[in-house]
Simulated assay, not measured.
Amino acid sequence: MNAPHDNGALRASLQALPRALRTLHKALIDVETVYFGAVGSALEHLHLITNHPHFAWLQPMSALMAALDEALDEPDKLSAQAAAGWRAAIEELVGPGAPDGTGFRAHYLVLLHDAPEVAMAHGALRQLLAPLPQRLR
């Protein structure tokens, strides 16, 4: 599939990513919560996700999602280079790019193989990344 070249196509391709990332992030949280055990109320669950060491490995993905949301809120034109940068940043987390060094990938790969909902969300994200331009090596 050809990479989108105009700003509208780039923006449309990038705007599909936050929903796919949130779906994947939720699937990861759901599986980790099952591994963790009973969490109590929704507020207690949120507190655990944001503060407990068991969930800390998810923080790089949370930060990336927030940064992408901020970037997409900007009315500025998006370059192919910027789109390639977002693709690379996501691929550093979920593959096939080189791991980002945070330890995210090791935990992620376990859940990718253990949880069908994570594998399905991963596949949906990969489909959205495919048409984005890649960084030149």
Rank of each mutant, 00 (worst) to 15 (best):
M1G: 13
N2D: 13
A3C: 05
P4V: 00
D6P: 13
A9M: 03
L10G: 12
A16L: 09
A20W: 05
L21G: 05
L21A: 00
L21D: 11
R22Q: 14
K26I: 03
A27P: 15
L28W: 02
I29T: 07
V31Y: 10
E32H: 07
T33M: 13
G37W: 10
V39A: 06
V39F: 12
H45P: 15
L46M: 12
L48A: 12
I49H: 05
F55E: 00
F55G: 06
A63T: 04
L64W: 02
A66W: 09
L68G: 09
L68H: 06
D69A: 07
L72D: 11
E74C: 07
K77L: 11
K77F: 02
K77P: 06
L78A: 10
A80H: 09
V94L: 13
G95L: 14
P96N: 05
P99W: 02
G101V: 03
G103P: 13
G103I: 01
A106D: 10
A106T: 08
H107R: 12
L109S: 02
L111C: 12
L112E: 15
P116E: 08
V118A: 01
A121T: 03
A121V: 02
G123R: 10
A124L: 14
L125C: 11
L125R: 02
A130R: 07
P131C: 11
P131E: 06
Q134H: 08
R135T: 05
R135I: 04
L136F: 08
R137W: 05
